[in-house]
Simulated scan of single mutants.
Amino acid sequence: MTEQSLLKLSIAVTVILALCGIGAGLYAASFAVVFDGIYSLTDAFMTMLALMVARLIANSALPNPGGKLAERFTMGFWHLEPMVLGLNGTLLIGAAIYALINAVDSLMDGGRMIAFDYAIIVTFFTFTVSLGMALFIQRKNRTLKSAFVALDAKSWLMSAMLSASLFIAFVVGYALLQSPYAWLASYTDPAVLALVCLVIIPMPFANVKQALADILLVTPAEFKQHVDKVARNVVEKFGFSSHYSYVARVGRGRQIELFFIVPKNAPARRLEEWDAIRDQVGEALGGEGHDRWLTIMFTTDEEWAI
């Protein structure tokens, strides 16, 4: 199964499950269940964007992509991936904060009574489907190794955790109705929603942080060290004066620019020899493929490299 087909399946299941959840939440008068559905719909929308970006990246890697988009984006579409990941995490955090505010407001107003029996059935069903999708997508991503698919699997796992928390809370609330503490049952829905939001809000921060680093072209330290190590070996092997390296990670893309400073009195080389040196450098760097953008230049003028 490809990245795109897996994301399509995830979108279809998410939309169906979200619409059912919203309808069931309205019927049961549970804002927590409605939030679960809205959260899933937001995730489905972002997964659709992720699918579009994944398709653009795959098409741009073709030998002759063609089309107006390829003419307008000659540097590729890698930069869209961190934008989508960052927007996804930001929207999920925003939705959880909004739900938390509503939950606190409901608690201050005395809570709300819901149809516990119906809510229990719905949340158990949602939990089962979400957990199954999370495990299925994680297993498929062991070979795909896609950041988009990994985020989608994490979203399914978060949905499963949310549904499990709601299920347990509704079981407790239903039990309270049969006890002397029945007055507490009306606080169950907003209380569990507030608790779930407090857990969910920090979870996308790591993805947002990484996406922001990619958008700002923050140089990955380990990657830079690897590039510099290879470059130093090349300088020593071919008698160059020095080198300058510029490295960035943009989504799944790896961008590398290497400038080698050649002594002005160095013996002349044929173009084929310079190309052979480039091949050696590229092989030593590793990671050759559609997601690597490698530029290697040789100059005697250091100003070209700064």
Rank of each mutant, 00 (worst) to 15 (best):
residue 150 A to E: 15
residue 5 S to M: 08
residue 196 V to S: 14
residue 120 I to C: 06
residue 31 F to R: 12
residue 247 V to T: 13
residue 84 V to H: 01
residue 54 A to E: 08
residue 92 L to W: 00
residue 17 L to R: 04
residue 210 Q to C: 06
residue 236 E to G: 08
residue 131 L to P: 03
residue 304 W to I: 09
residue 294 L to W: 02
residue 20 C to I: 15
residue 8 K to Y: 12
residue 63 P to M: 07
residue 232 R to F: 11
residue 107 L to Q: 00
residue 27 Y to T: 07
residue 300 T to R: 11
residue 2 T to W: 03
residue 17 L to F: 07
residue 55 R to V: 10
residue 237 K to E: 15
residue 123 T to L: 08
residue 41 L to N: 08
residue 192 V to T: 00
residue 15 V to D: 07
residue 126 T to W: 02
residue 113 M to L: 14
residue 4 Q to F: 12
residue 77 F to E: 01
residue 170 F to Q: 00
residue 243 H to W: 11
residue 23 G to L: 09
residue 68 K to E: 12
residue 177 L to A: 05
residue 300 T to Y: 04
residue 76 G to W: 10
residue 148 F to L: 13
residue 86 G to F: 03
residue 84 V to F: 06
residue 129 V to Q: 05
residue 237 K to F: 08
residue 261 I to L: 15
residue 262 V to F: 08
residue 42 T to H: 07
residue 201 I to V: 15
residue 209 K to C: 11
residue 70 A to Y: 05
residue 36 D to W: 00
residue 134 A to R: 04
residue 231 A to C: 13
residue 118 Y to I: 09
residue 57 I to C: 05
residue 129 V to A: 03
residue 87 L to Y: 06
residue 125 F to K: 02
residue 163 S to Q: 09
residue 254 R to Y: 05
residue 75 M to G: 13
residue 79 H to G: 09
residue 234 V to E: 07
residue 251 G to H: 02
residue 305 A to R: 02
residue 177 L to Y: 04
residue 60 S to T: 07
residue 301 D to E: 12
residue 227 V to E: 08
residue 202 P to W: 03
residue 169 A to T: 00
residue 52 M to Y: 14
residue 104 V to Y: 01
residue 109 D to G: 04
residue 285 L to I: 08
residue 52 M to K: 14
residue 82 P to V: 01
residue 101 I to G: 10
residue 175 A to D: 06
residue 83 M to C: 12
residue 64 N to D: 15
residue 251 G to V: 01
residue 225 Q to L: 13
residue 129 V to D: 04
residue 121 I to V: 15
residue 230 V to K: 03
residue 147 A to Q: 11
residue 259 F to S: 06
residue 193 L to N: 01
residue 5 S to D: 14
residue 132 G to Y: 05
residue 42 T to G: 15
residue 277 I to H: 12
residue 224 K to C: 09
residue 225 Q to A: 15
residue 143 T to D: 09
residue 30 S to Q: 00
residue 130 S to L: 04
residue 238 F to Y: 15
residue 33 V to G: 00
residue 75 M to I: 08
residue 226 H to I: 05
residue 284 A to T: 02
residue 199 V to F: 13
residue 241 S to M: 06
residue 48 M to R: 12
residue 80 L to T: 03
residue 241 S to V: 12
residue 230 V to L: 10
residue 215 I to E: 07
residue 251 G to F: 02
residue 160 A to Q: 13
residue 26 L to T: 04
residue 249 R to T: 11
residue 184 L to V: 05
residue 266 A to W: 03
residue 258 L to S: 01
residue 95 A to H: 12
residue 276 A to S: 15
residue 36 D to K: 00
residue 13 V to K: 10
residue 202 P to Q: 08
residue 14 T to F: 06
residue 255 Q to I: 08
residue 185 A to C: 06
residue 105 D to L: 14
residue 140 K to I: 06
